[in-house]
């Protein structure tokens, strides 16, 4: 993963999360993962195209997703319903979009795909031949992992 891409994603993650959740957001240690990765339960995926190819995955447990969506909507959600899902997808979109805007300012051209939300048990995501940068984020609502796998176009 190109060094220049790392900071925009980390910064965007924190500024967006702080803004929408209005709470203390703690960062875990960044690290790299080989191609496959288990998913905690709810995963929002935003695809990237342009100078690069890849995707950003926002991974959290169902409880965390419900808690985040509840705060963002200002009402207590009981389960991950349509509104909750749309909220999580929007959060993924906001973070990725802000990161891409920052990257645009640095001279990198990225396009986004609309976010897709995947939920279920025992899932695993694989991106063959691309290692992923993991940005663990500790929220009062639980753990959120941002998994960025981007490859330069050869």
């Amino acid at each position: 993963m190109r060094v220049e891409y790392i900071n925009p994603f980390v910064e965007a993650t924190f500024s967006v999360l702080k803004e929408v959740l209005n709470a203390k957001v703690e960062r875990g240690e960044l690290y790299l993962k080989p191609s496959s990765h288990p998913v905690l339960g709810v995963a929002a995926i935003v695809g990237l195209a342009g100078d690069v190819e890849g995707r950003v995955l926002f991974d959290m447990s169902r409880e965390t997703a419900v808690a985040i969506a509840s705060i963002m909507n200002g009402e207590e959600l009981q389960d991950l319903d349509e509104l909750g899902k749309a909220t999580i997808a929007e959060l993924a979109n906001m973070i990725t979009a802000q990161a891409v805007t920052k990257l645009h300012d640095l001279g990198f051209r990225f396009d986004l795909t609309p976010p897709a939300l995947i939920t279920g048990q025992n899932m695993e995501v694989s991106s063959p031949n691309v290692e992923a940068l993991i940005v663990p984020v500790m929220l009062p609502q639980g753990k959120l992992e941002i998994n960025v796998a981007i490859r330069e176009r050869a």
Partner: peptide
């Protein structure tokens, strides 16, 4: 091109 990368992972 500087990359944050672990050499034991796939090198694409």
């Amino acid at each position: 091109l500087f990359e944050y990368h672990d050499i034991v992972h796939p090198n694409p």
